[in-house]
Simulated scan of single mutants.
Amino acid sequence: MKFIRLATVAALSTTIFAGGVQGFAEEAGESKEVRDTTTEGKITFTPGDDDTIVDPGTEGPDVEIPVITDPDGNNKGPLTISTVPTMNFGSQIISTTDETYNMVAERQQLIGTTGDENKVPYVSMAQVDDTRGSNEGWVLNLSLTEFEAATDTQNKVLKGAHISLHDPSIRYSLDDAAQMPAAHATGLKLMPNEAGVAVMTAAPEKGAGKSTVEWGDHAALAQQIEDGKEVVENTSIKLFVPGSTAKDAVTYTSTLTWELESTPGNEEE
Rank of each mutant, 00 (worst) to 15 (best):
K2Y: 01
I4G: 14
L6M: 04
T8E: 11
A10H: 12
L12P: 01
G20T: 05
G23V: 04
E26A: 12
A28F: 15
G29Q: 14
G29T: 09
T37A: 15
T39K: 08
E40D: 15
I43R: 06
G48H: 11
P56V: 08
P56K: 10
T58Y: 02
D62H: 11
I65C: 00
P66D: 06
D72S: 12
P85E: 09
N88E: 03
Q92A: 08
I93V: 12
T96A: 14
Y101M: 07
T114R: 06
T114C: 02
D116A: 06
D116H: 03
V120Q: 03
V120A: 02
M125F: 02
T131F: 12
E136T: 12
G137N: 03
W138R: 07
V139S: 12
E148M: 05
T151G: 04
D152L: 06
L158C: 03
K159I: 00
I163Q: 05
P168M: 12
I170M: 10
S173V: 03
D175Y: 13
T186F: 08
T186C: 11
V199C: 01
A208I: 10
Q223G: 02
V231M: 05
V231N: 06
T235D: 15
T235R: 14
V241R: 09
V241K: 07
T253H: 08
L256I: 04
W258L: 04
E261Q: 05
S262P: 10
G265E: 04
